[in-house]
Design a protein around this nucleic acid. Structure first.
Lengths: 235, 235
DNA sequence: CTTGAACCTCACGCCACGGGAGGTCCTACG
DNA sequence: CGTAGGACCTCCCGTGGCGTGAGGTTCAAG
């Protein structure tokens, strides 16, 4: 049996008959022969070509790329190297995604997954890629529990501030000053002291405090920012 | 500014205007308001939703999956876990591809890349996934140079066999028996002695010896298989 | 000689948008 | 006040890599 029907070839190659039809249509892998009635007969050379195509496809090339790779076989090596680089980048991206997702699943209950994701997305738009890398590596160095602890302390400090504000404690009160000082300290640990990152974080916070508040259950904006500003001014 | 135009939102989110139009068309993220003239106005809630969608998309979900994930938010966790598993599998696949490609680029000159790829593809169809995993891990344990050395020895043995055959040495000759013995030994090292893998390798070899020969420059089938069979029988 | 499986050729459908045509709307400048 | 040009609108066709029929022919086994 030196000729193959389309069905046999499909089974052997793990592709579908439709796919082989498609390759034939676009002239990528054409059956060299036909039976008198029009059935495709694939020769060993056709089969070889098909396997080459399948291999290149598995390396992530488009059909057009496969076609040109096969037509000018001298250019294969740079193409492979480019493809290797692209694959590496893809793998790294996937790995980053994977670790973020793992962290999410570890640290959060279901009902917070969405809002956390959303806040991550919102905040990301305020930072450059470099800055985000910084933040992430710092977070990784601290470990997830430390990050969670930091978040919790931060929320607690905000809660205390809101309490003081509700109790009509004047912003100049030393207790308020102390909370603000610890707040800034936490912020510095988060931002690594980088003024650009601090500025970005502040912008993000100010423009999204309503959304953050919604997420953790605060009432709408009620002057917290002004209260803190007055506290700073009084210092 | 509590409402956003489509252009502002596109810039902020890193998506295109066309994409936002698309999400609107399919009812995934619809601008809650319009100006009297029909321009879209996105409310903060719309923006939140969009960021959720963007996040889930970045995790590799299809738009339909995103839609259903957002409609029944209690099922998020299993979905995330499934997605995590899928991402992990993808990353592993990519990594495997990457290492294969690296090995190819290291070990072969350009003109053999294609035929090597092709032979890999052909042979793979003869083995189950488990068996391939076995083969790969054995190859990895041996290291690439050892694998290349093994291949070279194997080709050399075949060359000797062909030589004997060309010299009309009878298959019962002890020299032939010795070559066949060493051939089987090599094969055992390759297959790990697993009879199922040996059978698959034999099938692959017999059905593809013509193609293999073409690749390494042998003439067409000339009775090598029968010669070896007679040598085995005489043993 | 008859099934039923395998094959053939159209030809439309899918996803997630890209991109252009042709028109309306908004804003800033002269 | 007019106008230029940018942002926006809807409509609609195109893309890649096939999937999935519909409706008809051919092949291999019984």
């Amino acid at each position: 049996m030196t000729r193959w029907s389309i069905g046999e070839l499909a089974k052997a190659s793990g592709l579908t008959v439709r796919t082989l039809h498609h390759y034939d249509e676009i002239g990528l892998v054409v059956a060299s022969e036909r039976t008198p009635s029009g059935h495709r007969r694939y020769t060993p050379d056709d089969v070889r070509l098909l396997y080459q195509v399948r291999s290149l496809r598995q390396l992530g090339l488009s059909l057009e790329e496969v076609r040109s790779a096969l037509s000018r076989s001298d250019s294969l090596r740079p193409l492979f190297e480019a493809q290797l680089a692209s694959l590496t980048a893809q793998a790294q991206q996937l790995e980053a995604l994977r670790s973020r997702l793992t962290a999410l699943l570890d640290g959060h209950t279901t009902e917070f997954l969405l809002s956390t994701l959303e806040m991550m997305a919102v905040h990301e738009s305020y930072f450059t890629a470099d800055q985000l890398g910084d933040l992430r590596s710092r977070a990784a160095a601290m470990g997830p529990e430390a990050v969670e602890a930091l978040k919790a302390s931060w929320l607690e400090l905000v809660r205390q501030l809101r309490q003081h504000m509700a109790d009509d404690v004047p912003p100049s009160d030393p207790r308020v000053a102390e909370v603000v000082r610890r707040w800034d300290e936490l912020g510095a640990r988060f931002t690594g002291g980088d003024p650009a990152i601090q500025a970005a974080a502040r912008r993000s916070w100010e423009e999204n405090k309503a959304a953050i508040g919604k997420q953790v259950g605060w009432p709408a904006d009620d002057g917290l920012v002004e209260y803190v500003a007055r506290a700073r001014a009084a210092r």
